[in-house]
């Protein structure tokens, strides 16, 4: 029996000041249960509050942001660095080289230089960035920066990985390469992942389950298990009838949500 890692029960959330006048409701009675080892994609119209769910799960919501109701339970060990959060914008430290960026989370826990360098190098090799260790972020392409952004989070081995449209800003080709890498990394580690995207195809290609959200105030409108075996080859998977079936199925619902 798997245990649930993130559980939202009837969660509603509104941004704005507490004086109730200019509150904007983003989430309305959201129920979401992410089990250990699931790769759940959240798909919905832009601005519907997908990122808010990640912020809630990461514990980044403060009372100053607005009001929430309902219950949010995130199950993780009692230590730091149990949650990894990958932002759409690659938030690399511009004054650190690639390897120093990947080392950062290990550095602040006091891991000795040699060990953290070793771990960082391993991750850099895995995503094909070897040879670029000593480049500064401005010297890397967008795809390389986003790869660095992702492995910086994976380097400290979090229990839960939250990703907020990590591939949203990339060109189609780079996007596909990174989708494959994310898929490979996931099938090797089977971590609990919540992946926010506005791209339904990407969601189906990567996930074990796709969750559709409505327009704002958003609520969960559908949850579909994607029963395709891993490891997946993103490029080929797109062309299989199984994928097309799932895609068409969800596409109609997705379009209804946009109306």
């Amino acid at each position: 029996m798997k245990q649930s890692k993130i559980r939202l029960d009837n969660v509603s959330a509104s941004y704005g000041s507490a004086d109730q006048q200019n509150l904007v409701q983003v989430l309305h009675n959201v129920n979401l249960d992410v089990q250990e080892g699931e790769f759940v994609s959240i798909v919905g119209p832009s601005g519907c509050g997908k990122s808010t769910i990640l912020n809630l799960a990461a514990g980044l919501w403060s009372s100053a942001d607005g009001a929430i109701s309902g219950s949010i339970k995130v199950d993780h060990a009692d230590r730091k660095q149990t949650i990894g959060y990958v932002l759409q914008k690659d938030a690399l430290f511009p004054w650190r080289t690639l390897i120093k960026n990947v080392e950062y989370p290990l550095e602040i826990t006091g891991l000795p230089r040699k060990q953290r360098e070793e771990i960082a190098r391993e991750w850099i090799d895995r995503v094909g960035l070897a040879g670029f260790e000593d480049r500064y972020p401005y010297q890397l392409s967008g795809g390389m920066r986003q790869r660095a952004n992702i492995i910086r989070v994976l380097a400290y081995d979090p229990e839960i990985v939250l990703m907020d449209e990590p591939l949203g800003a990339l060109d189609a080709h780079t996007r596909m390469v990174l989708q494959q890498q994310i898929s490979d990394l996931w099938s090797a580690s089977r971590k609990t992942v919540v992946f926010v995207t506005h791209d339904l195809e990407e969601a189906i290609l990567l996930s074990t389950r796709v969750v559709l959200m409505t327009k704002r105030p958003a609520t969960v409108s559908a949850s579909r298990t994607i029963d395709l075996p891993y490891p997946r080859t993103v490029m080929n998977l797109k062309l299989t009838p199984e994928f097309r079936n799932l895609y068409e199925n969800l596409w109609h619902e997705f379009c209804d949500l946009l109306r």
Partner: peptide, 26 residues
Amino acid sequence: VDPDLVKVARIMGSNRFQIFRHVIMP
């Protein structure tokens, strides 16, 4: 200071001093 940098530094477990030292100061 880029609020996203502060955000990721915090999620990665940096304490206030580390954020000051590694994000604000540079």
